[in-house]
């Protein structure tokens, strides 16, 4: 166990030496990897934030049924009874016109204007949750309720939210595809870097093979080099995305003051950050492994 640890510490040390030996090249490599990775990660962060925000707005699509303005209590009770009997409806809530007016007063700040109205312009309304939230079921339900007596208008809201959601899901997929492609590119870049290293160290590798070095001993510094390069790239991407989020929040902060809303870009979570560091590191390791095992086999002695 101790020998194993010492061997790995040795490999790690040798990898660090190689990085220190070419600091500029290593830094540039990390920068390239970091900038490339920051694209999908930044997109992912943006999409996650928008998605969370859109979920706050509407959890599930709802149907709003507005009664005619002159509908009386009995007619409303009738509709309520029908709603209760319809199995496609999971829940409903009556919003009486007085309550609706009070809410409008509270949220819009137009107290003076509303107080000046001669009568309440708002109808009584039902907010309905369907048992089956699929679009076809919702539309069927909407069409049915529309035909009930004294129902003036039925609105299937949240359609825009679903469109937004679909858009976000699409963006998320774009981020995933971009991330996968750049992950492959990272493996390829590491493969090439390590290939060059193996070729320039060919003589050294031949000598230590003659002295009795195992393949694992020869491979270790290269593998650690690949992993460290990936890790550094991940760290650069983390910095870029975090700095981007910080700057975006500063300008969003001004917007928030104006609109008194909660516009804020959350930074990467600790879990995301860890993944952003470890994924490129393992991809780097993998690329290095592919390269070094392939090229060591060519230096067969």
């Amino acid at each position: 166990m101790r020998a194993w640890l010492a061997a790995h510490a040795g490999g790690f040390g040798a990898a660090l030496e190689r990085i220190a030996f070419a600091p500029l090249g290593s830094a540039l490599n990390a920068l390239v990897i970091g900038i490339a990775l920051s694209l999908p990660v930044g997109l992912y962060l943006l999409v996650s934030n928008l998605q969370a925000a859109s979920h706050q707005l509407t959890a599930a699509p709802q149907i709003s049924a507005f009664m005619a303005l002159d509908a009386n209590r009995a007619e409303i009770a009738q509709i309520e009874a029908r709603l209760k009997q319809t199995p496609q409806i999971a829940a409903y809530r009556l919003v009486p016109r007085e309550q609706a007016l009070a809410e409008l007063k509270k949220s819009s700040g137009l107290t003076d204007v509303i107080d000046g109205l001669p009568q309440n312009p708002l109808p009584d309304a039902f907010v309905i949750d369907a048992a089956d939230p699929s679009p076809t079921a919702l539309e069927a339900l909407r069409d049915e309720i529309r035909q009930w007596p004294r129902v003036a208008h039925v609105q299937l809201d949240a359609q825009w939210a679903r469109r937004l959601d679909a858009g976000l899901r699409f963006s998320r997929m774009v981020a995933a595809i971009l991330g996968t492609l750049l992950g492959i590119a990272l493996v390829a870049v590491t493969f090439n870097t390590i290939r060059l290293q193996v070729l320039t160290r060919r003589e050294e590798i031949e000598v230590i093979k003659l002295i009795g070095a195992t393949d694992a001993f020869i491979q270790r510094p290269f593998l650690y080099f690949g992993a460290l390069q990936g890790l550094a790239g991940g760290a650069v991407a983390w910095l870029i995305v975090s700095a981007g989020a910080y700057l975006a929040n500063r300008s969003l902060g001004e917007l928030s003051h104006v609109y008194a809303s909660l516009l804020q870009l959350n930074a990467l979570t600790p879990g995301d950050s860890l993944a952003l560091l470890l994924t490129p590191a393992s991809l780097g390791w993998f690329g290095a492994w592919l390269s070094v095992s392939r090229h060591l086999a060519l230096i067969e002695r």
């Binding site: 009795g212 070095a213 195992t214």
Partner: peptide, 20 residues
């Protein structure tokens, strides 16, 4: 896989030294 361990029972001296 056995070759490296076998080589460790030898000490090798080369005409061109093969130093690093």
């Amino acid at each position: 896989r056995a070759v490296p361990f076998m080589r460790r029972s030898f000490g090798l001296v080369f005409q061109d030294h093969k130093l690093l």
